[in-house]
Design a protein around this nucleic acid. Structure first.
Lengths: 305, 305
DNA sequence: ACCTATCGATATTTGATAGATATGCCTCGT
DNA sequence: ACGAGGCATATCTATCAAATATCGATAGGT
């Protein structure tokens, strides 16, 4: 059996008339009669009762008609699905991000834009640590990740800097340096005697190294206090008065009681990058759409905090 | 597109290898390659990535594979449905019966047997008055009906007597005739002075006429009291002491408080028939199965009450 | 690094079969 | 009774699926 038989059968059933159906199908009556008979022979079921004026569905024919229609519909749907999947309009994209990434407005903005442009793509979001994200990319558990800094084991991954943002110092509310006018930039060297609460990623260098290096550049070697497993937890420690921290500017959105942010000056190298990591080649079209969308406006949006 | 393309596609997807798939399909590799390409061309979607050793589904191909499989399954189901419907193993049968019919064990027995033999046929049961049932047969609302007596407007319907059963007299519990030993038959003439509560069917002769005729044959003209719209309601009136009634023997199963049944003698013609009515020709196979099943064992079961 | 086996693509031929043409036969309506 | 309408049958044609032969690319062995 072929779909042709179903198409013919449906038309004949709808017309109740082989000759008219043949006309509608753009063919002659005899071959249509033959194909219908061939279908009946294969089914070993009489689908039509031949009447002197036209044909009429048998009960078996009626039952078959329903099914035949739904089969053709499903064929159409299968076509549409394949095409949409090929075009990246349908499918699944798993996006990972570190805890600090979504605070930069770029990330939620681009995710929202993607959902609007490709509503049929199911977008799975996963927050996790940078090393887990990199691992996830290798395992093909995730397709793309927003991370904060170049990672060690990114060999075999594509890493694209999206934007850089300034870093702020986060001070406990009662701190001496927090009393000054907030919007005046603080020289990094002013923090020489502070205890630093830093986010230390287990596997490889992150913002940690960036900060240490910047401090050295400002002429002091920072005293590092407690380390926290996630950026947000460092702020909890700052709020508790255990020290100061240096965090990406977008974290300012996270208004925590007991934490005051101040801009830093004289440390041009103290920037927090936002990086997109993905697997090279072999990405599904939907993933490719996502990557394109993320990178295209990245330049224009750039660092508008 | 034809089902052939789907069959080929699925096999290639499963083998990941065109040459092996061709082998499994009992054909050569080049035509299979061509058909796959033709499918891709029609879809305008690449379904396979050609690798040096075999082929590999693309994401679109994976999405399409699922659908393709379910389409072929649905085709199989459509075939099975058509065949079963043709054989009468699937479909719908609407059976009507008058209120008194199901009390004869033959009716529930045959219905149960049908359900067991043809579990895929949805059997709809409808209790209704004889004239409504006849009307329903004409309107094609019902396919077969168990009725009690030859009906007037059965023209155009097939009417098949299934069995005959004796009739009993139903007496009020306190009645003089009810005091005698119950299992001794009562001559019909003994009821000469009783008031008869009879079921009077609006459209045509029924048991009503049978009873009147039998009484005349026994030498008296019955005094007819209240008439009830359904046989069972006559028994309510009997229980209330408003008179006696004559009902099919199977109604004995309906043990009502205040009603006593006695056999009748000397009235061979006083029989209650059970009749199967249906439309001539043009019945669905499932209905035909039902009619066959009802009539085949009807002779053997006959009148075992 | 080269050579060879593997496997898909391409080119050409063959064959099956869907479809066209011509005609027959049955039924209904006039 | 006759003609028109409509499906079936018979025969022919053309298309397209499949077979055969060959090419080309790649991976893996030596």
């Amino acid at each position: 059996m072929e779909l042709r038989h179903l198409r013919y059968f449906i038309t004949v059933a709808e017309e109740g008339h082989i000759t008219r159906a043949a006309e509608r199908l753009g063919m002659q009556q005899p071959p249509l009669s033959q194909q219908i008979r061939a279908l009946e022979r294969e089914l070993d079921v009489q689908l039509f009762r031949r009447k002197p004026r036209g044909v009429e569905l048998t009960d078996a024919g009626t039952a078959f008609l329903e099914r035949a229609r739904s089969i053709l519909e499903e064929v159409d749907r299968a076509f549409a699905t394949a095409r949409r999947t090929a075009r990246g309009e349908q499918g699944r994209v798993v996006v990972g991000f570190t805890g600090s990434a979504p605070f930069h407005p770029f990330v939620p903005r681009v995710i929202r834009a993607f959902r609007e442009m490709y509503p049929l793509v199911s977008l799975v979001l996963e927050e996790s640590g940078s090393s887990e994200l990199v691992q996830g990319l290798h395992n093909e558990d995730i397709d793309a990740a927003f991370i904060r800094s170049p990672v060690a084991d990114v060999v075999g991954l594509v890493v694209k800097p999206l934007l850089e943002e300034d870093m702020l110092v986060a001070l406990p509310a009662g701190h001496a340096l927090a009393r000054e006018t907030e919007d005046r930039a603080l020289p990094l060297s002013a923090l020489a005697n502070e205890i630093f609460i830093l986010y230390k990623r287990p596997g490889g260098p992150g913002l940690y190294d960036t900060i240490i290096t910047a401090c050295r550049g400002a002429g002091f070697s920072p005293r590092v206090g407690q380390e926290a497993p996630r950026i947000i937890s460092t702020l909890n420690l700052v709020a508790a008065g255990l020290g100061v921290s240096v965090v990406p500017a977008s974290l300012r959105r996270l208004q925590m009681d007991g934490v005051v942010y101040r801009r830093l000056s004289g440390s041009a190298e103290l920037k927090a990058p936002l990086i997109l990591a993905c697997r090279p080649g072999e990405n599904s079209a939907a993933v490719q759409r996502f990557l394109d969308l993320v990178q295209r406006p990245a330049e224009s949006v750039a660092s508008d905090n």
